[in-house]
Simulated scan of single mutants.
Amino acid sequence: MSKPNTKLLNNQQIFALIGIAVCCGLLILAVPRFIASLYALYPEAAFKQMPQTLPTEVYEKSIADLSKALSWYQNPDYWQTQGGFYLQLFNNRPLQTPAQKQAYLKQAKTAITRGLSLSPVDPRGWLQLAVVDSLLKMPKQQIISALRLSFYAGRVEPELVIPRLRFSYTYYADFTEDMQQLWQKQIPVAWAFKAPQLVKFITAHPEAKQPALKAFIYSPEEADKFLSRFK
Rank of each mutant, 00 (worst) to 15 (best):
T170P: 07
I28Q: 04
Y169W: 14
Q186M: 11
Y171R: 04
K200C: 09
P32A: 06
L26I: 03
P43E: 07
Q197F: 11
S62R: 13
Y218M: 14
A30W: 05
T56S: 05
A45S: 14
I144P: 15
Q141C: 10
Y78K: 03
A192F: 08
R93L: 02
P211A: 02
I143Y: 08
W191M: 00
V131Q: 14
L27V: 13
Q186H: 09
I14C: 00
L9T: 02
K140M: 12
Y171E: 07
Q142F: 07
A108V: 09
S71Q: 03
P123V: 10
T56I: 05
A173V: 00
I143P: 12
K200T: 13
D224N: 13
S119Y: 08
N92Y: 13
S145A: 12
E159W: 06
A195Q: 15
L147D: 05
F151S: 05
M1G: 14
F216G: 11
A223Y: 08
K7D: 11
P55N: 11
K106D: 04
Q181K: 14
V121D: 14
D178L: 04
C23R: 09
I28F: 08
V22E: 03
S62C: 05
P158W: 01
Q80T: 03
Q180S: 11
V31M: 14
L227H: 12
L27S: 15
A223P: 06
T170C: 01
A173L: 09
R229L: 14
S168G: 10
G19C: 04
P196R: 15
P94C: 06
L54M: 12
M138V: 11
K200F: 06
I35E: 01
L129W: 02
M138T: 15
I162D: 08
F226N: 01
R114C: 11
F151L: 10
L26S: 10
A21K: 00
I187Y: 04
K68C: 09
L54A: 13
S168F: 03
P123N: 12
A215D: 10
Q197K: 12
L27A: 13
W72I: 01
V131A: 08
A153D: 10
Y78W: 05
N92P: 06
I14V: 11
A130K: 00
V161H: 02
P51M: 07
A64F: 04
L213S: 13
S150E: 00
A192T: 13
L26M: 05
R124Y: 02
G84H: 07
L165S: 07
P94Y: 12
I35Q: 01
F47V: 03
S228F: 03
L127P: 02
Y171V: 02
E222T: 09
V161T: 06
V131N: 09
P32H: 15
K209P: 06
Y172N: 00
Y218T: 06
Q80L: 15
E222Q: 14
L27P: 11
I28D: 04
T203F: 00
R164Y: 01
K137Q: 13
Q52P: 04
D133A: 01
K106S: 08
L70S: 07
T56P: 01
S150I: 02
P4L: 08
W72S: 04
L160H: 09
V121W: 09
A30Q: 07
